[in-house]
Design a protein around this nucleic acid. Structure first.
Lengths: 155, 155
DNA sequence: GAAGAAGTTGACGTTCACGTAAACTATCGG
DNA sequence: CCGATAGTTTACGTGAACGTCAACTTCTTC
């Protein structure tokens, strides 16, 4: 029994420190995300240490994207993920408990969130495009000013 | 002298409440922005009430854009604006005090910030485009699932 | 010119998203 | 087996970005 190996569960699982380093957050952040029910590590070692699987890391990446790219707060992110989780369940236990009526409900919510997010994305893209044009015209003006200075000092 | 009109300075100037309502922030936010040196109203009434001009409102809009679209914190935003202000001075007092050397310095800083911001914008655009593709494929899957349900219930 | 709405300066409170310290346990290399 | 390193829970602290009184003045309207 005492094989002497390091006791963990699944092969791809990493510990909290590695997960943190890999994704650029702190260990505190990971524990905090768990605390608020945002990201549960898929397993624990026999001693109680968190083990983050591949899917956990992907989920973490998604969380950070939603936070930094879309500017969602952790509450909104939780909503989004909760909804995706529901869909995941739908898919796994294909005829999950209450049928059709419940399925449509979940799909409806998912579609609503999807639409909302697409709207946010579109709005951000608009704003970014405008800002990009602004920045480029300013950059052009800066270059012109520098050329002017060069001409003046060449004289 | 006592014309009886409401005592303010420039015609386009609005009070803090109107400025707040127009830009979707609170009056507290405007006072706070002034407190940290981010946005000084261009004038005051004789009694001491803030008067926000057209340029102030534009600046405020820029602040909110930098905050919400690029996700900058107020410190970074202050940096950006401070730099633009310096350029503005350069332009107004065209040969402002120390010449050339100082001018190039300011231009350099402006160009550096501009480049940094363009990089941030580009990165965000990448992330957004990826997210958009994700969302669209998910939307397609949702529609497919709904069709499936429809077919099942039509039977 | 009196009332009520809006604005002023403090000053303290609040929420979010973690940071940090302490005391203890687990895991790993030797 | 032992020491170093990493992880655990619990709890209090923190910075950013405002919110919320309170006490007072100013502006606008009737």
């Amino acid at each position: 029994m005492t094989v002497g190996e390091h006791d963990d569960d699944r092969p791809g699982a990493v510990r909290i420190g590695e997960a943190a380093a890999a994704s650029g957050v702190s260990t505190r952040t990971l524990r905090f995300y768990e605390e608020i029910g945002l990201l549960e590590p898929s397993g624990r070692s026999t001693g109680g240490a968190r083990r983050y699987g591949e899917a956990d890391l992907a989920r973490l990446q998604q969380i950070r994207d939603l936070q930094e790219v879309l500017g969602f707060d952790l509450g909104e992110i939780k909503e989004v993920l909760r909804c995706e989780d529901a869909l995941g369940e739908l898919r796994s236990e294909y005829r999950s408990g209450a049928p059709d009526r419940r399925r449509r409900e979940i799909l409806g919510e998912a579609s609503a969130i999807n639409a909302k997010m697409r709207a946010v994305v579109a709005a951000k893209q608009q704003a970014l495009a405008a800002m990009q044009r602004e920045l480029e015209s300013k950059a052009a003006r800066y270059r012109a000013l520098v050329r002017e200075l060069d001409r003046a000092s060449a004289r």
